[in-house]
């Protein structure tokens, strides 16, 4: 399994993502600069956290026009796994690969803390190693993670079982609609989430609950491709 971690000017969780994939799966992972125009050699694409282009104009608004984003969209259409974490989630919504938008946190505060997530859907390539309804601990670090979509879009997300993670009731750190923390597209191959699973891959980091997200991805790939 070959993983590309996209690196924009201002990305800062890129190496964490590379190391998380390397330490939790038998696959390889490498950084790919944002001017790359072809990602066909990769099985999995991670759009990492950070502050691409300084969050100028809106978080993700400028990164979304980077040359690499056409390639990301192409591979997403082909059914490859594309995962956006934090700023990566913002980039994927700006690019129209996921519905909705991320607003400023309701509290106006940048929140950097451990979050409790409920795994809402285990029938995705990213969550098959979790149990439905399980509460997992994954850290967040964002000022603009307040997910918004209009009522019709949220109903559609509910109906298609696209809501993958919610913050535990009464523990929503940013005011997101429906306590949404992470969603997938209709085909379930594109994931966006504000919490950082790559920062929760060892007990020494405060939680190892993110490990199974990466092992889910690897198991999905292995089932489709064998053990290469």
């Amino acid at each position: 399994m070959k993983t590309a971690v996209i690196q924009f000017p201002g990305s800062n969780c890129d190496m964490d993502a590379v190391k998380a994939v390397q330490s939790t799966t038998a696959g390889t992972a490498e950084l790919v600069w944002h001017t790359t125009k072809d990602l066909s050699a990769y099985d999995v694409i991670v759009v990492p956290g950070g502050f691409s282009y300084g969050d100028y104009l809106r978080a993700g608004a400028i990164a979304r026009f980077s040359p690499v984003m056409d390639a990301v969209a192409t591979e997403a259409l082909r059914g490859k796994l594309v995962m956006g974490i934090c700023n990566g989630f913002q980039v994927l919504t700006e690019a129209g690969l996921l519905p909705g938008a991320l607003r400023q946190n309701e509290s106006l505060q940048f929140r950097c803390e451990m979050a409790q997530l409920v795994v809402e859907n285990t029938d995705t390539p990213y969550t098959r190693s979790y149990h439905e309804g399980e509460v997992i601990r994954i850290p967040i670090a964002h000022g603009e993670g307040n997910y918004y979509a209009d009522d019709a879009t949220v109903q559609e997300l509910e109906k298609n079982e696209q809501i993958v993670f919610r913050y535990r009731k009464e523990h929503n750190p940013n005011g997101s609609v429906g306590d949404i923390a992470g969603i997938v597209n209709k085909n379930k191959n594109v994931l966006g989430m504000m919490p950082h699973p790559e920062r929760a891959v060892h007990e020494l980091l405060g939680s190892a609950d993110g490990v199974r997200l990466f092992t889910s991805i690897f198991t999905t790939w292995r089932d489709a491709h064998g053990t290469r």
């Binding site: 104009l57 919504t93 700006e94 938008a101 607003r103």
Partner: peptide, 8 residues
């Protein structure tokens, strides 16, 4: 296309 996000 760019200067605003029509979703919000």
């Amino acid at each position: 296309k760019f200067l605003t996000n029509p979703v919000i």
